[in-house]
Design a protein around this nucleic acid. Sequence first.
DNA 1: TATCAATTATTAGTGTGACAACTAATTTCG
DNA 2: CGAAATTAGTTGTCACACTAATAATTGATA
Lengths: 146, 146
Amino acid sequence: MLKEKYSQYSFILDRTARRVKQYAQNSFLQGAFDLTIDQWSILKILYEEDAMTQKEIAEKSGKDQPTLTRIVDILIKKRLAQRVEHPEDRRCLHLKLTKEGKAKVEELSPAVKEIRMKAWENLSEDDFENFTRILNTIYNNLNQQS
Amino acid sequence: MLKEKYSQYSFILDRTARRVKQYAQNSFLQGAFDLTIDQWSILKILYEEDAMTQKEIAEKSGKDQPTLTRIVDILIKKRLAQRVEHPEDRRCLHLKLTKEGKAKVEELSPAVKEIRMKAWENLSEDDFENFTRILNTIYNNLNQQS
DNA sequence: TATCAATTATTAGTGTGACAACTAATTTCG
DNA sequence: CGAAATTAGTTGTCACACTAATAATTGATA
């Protein structure tokens, strides 16, 4: 295999991921959403399934627990979410959206979808399928266990 | 278009980019390379073309100038690179590798290529072509100017 | 030539990511 | 039962990304 050639995907992958994030963040700023991309991603997860523990959210979002703790702190400071005691396990905390949090998700969802779609101009349905398949294959190839 | 479906690529892209970086970083740690991935990427660029300004390196690496300043500070602290005055423009600084810096790149290059290849198990040459094409299309779709 | 605009690099501030170490609570098992 | 291991969450540290603001220098132009 031509290692020189293959080993350069990482640069393109990294810069594209950064640009996707940056583009969305700029759009958020212009729309005065008062949220970062990562804060939004956690809000979205909570909207789809309320009352999860932070551990569960961390797994679902692919973030580690310290990172999640900090994002949740910010969401709470913004009064978009709240921590609630777990009824059976005092180590855990259930997170729930506040009314404001739910309203925020409902208000912004359509705009966020539009922002996300921009990336797919000039690309086909096949491209989308291949792209997600390849990304997931790479993700699994580099799994911690292996 | 099914916006709901298409708008979820960003999560997969982000988490895969993070895992690629993390996998390489862990391999660097185990090999006691004493470098981060991003420090390595700058060293590599300097090895290929010595005596560039920070502005040029920033463009080539896809990093912004503040980020580059910090990474270069670290490389200099590690005695792998040095700043040299630009002969014609006193605003600029030429960066050059030290002997140690060049030796480091030569020493680690083969190992880094091996690490990078791991991601491509179970994937074909076509996948590689499609992957880079799609990434670059997305990157251009989200160009600042547009 | 004197001023103003553009360019290069830096600094400060905020947010995030990874890792290690820690607390508190719970579970396991001798 | 009680000590040890495990688990959930937090805090601290370092590195990086991005923005805005600044200093120093250069170039353009009136």
